[in-house]
């Protein structure tokens, strides 16, 4: 045990012959939030997909370097094991359209045999929806399709679905980008309490410096496939040492 839930070492990713990430390294201590920032197209989403081996599904992707989850290399695990231990929530809310709200959350635990009875499954679903701050709004209509939810609620449903498989790490790719401010605050609160109370480690891609400071403990600033600055969020945000980071925080990048 290293005390780090996630270590990324010299990660290099090539997509369709184009080098996207070129030697990215950072570490996330257990039960912390690490914000990943950087201009559009720097490879933040690509990095999250590399971490949980979703990129394995893309025949055009080449991933090099090492990624360790609680000290164990993801290359020693099956891809599906990695994906379950580090689940991802995407920029656009994408609940399964053909399933009810309940089933969207229950399907993961069912696939992994996490519940031995209907009651246990109900409990997991409730726990996940509460953790995603959605329970109160949907508890009376769990059988509805997700199309009856607002965009922000759908995103929180996606979060609950990811939580229900009991991951150690949550990879969040701009989860509040397409969501109204009220829902964004709820998602931020959900993330903070998940880390505090459930010990989950979060990697959180965001475009908003203010959000990064509010939510994260550590900040990694990516530029053009490299990490140009990293450290405790407040320090980096208030006192950036790299001119690129400073420019980004002033909104000029």
């Amino acid at each position: 045990m290293t005390g780090y839930a996630l270590e990324v070492r010299d990660l290099r990713v090539t997509l369709s012959g184009k080098r996207i990430l070129d030697g990215v390294s950072f570490r996330c201590p257990e039960a912390t939030v690490t914000a990943v920032m950087g201009p559009s197209g720097t490879g933040k989403s690509t990095m999250l997909r590399a971490i949980n081996r979703l990129l394995d599904l893309n025949p055009e992707a080449i991933v090099e370097g090492d990624i360790l989850i609680h000290g164990r290399s993801v290359w020693e695990m099956e891809p599906y094991e990695v994906r379950r231990r580090a689940t991802m929530v995407f920029q656009d809310p994408n609940p399964f359209p053909h399933m009810s709200i309940y089933d969207n959350v229950a399907v993961g635990p069912r696939l992994h045999g996490l519940a031995r009875s209907k009651r246990e499954l109900d409990e997991i679903v409730r726990w996940a929806l509460e953790r995603a701050m959605l329970w109160d709004e949907v508890k009376d209509r769990l059988g509805d399709p997700p199309s009856k939810l607002s965009g922000g609620q759908r995103q929180r449903l996606s979060l609950a679905r990811a939580l229900a498989v009991k991951p150690e790490i949550l990879l969040l790719d701009e989860p509040t980008a397409n969501v109204d401010p009220v829902n964004a605050v709820k998602i931020e609160e959900a993330i903070r309490s998940l880390v505090r109370e459930e010990g989950i480690t979060v990697v959180f891609v965001t475009h908003m410096p203010s959000q990064a400071v509010r939510v994260s403990d550590y900040l990694v600033f990516l530029y053009d496939g490299h990490v140009v600055e990293q450290g405790p969020s407040r320090e980096v945000a208030l006192n950036p040492s790299n001119p690129l980071t400073e420019k980004f925080f002033r909104g000029e990048l």
Partner: peptide, 14 residues
């Protein structure tokens, strides 16, 4: 949709 597909794989089943 690609998003639904990725979310499905992201749940970590084979």
């Amino acid at each position: 949709p690609e998003g639904v597909r990725e979310a499905a794989y992201s749940l970590g089943a084979t």
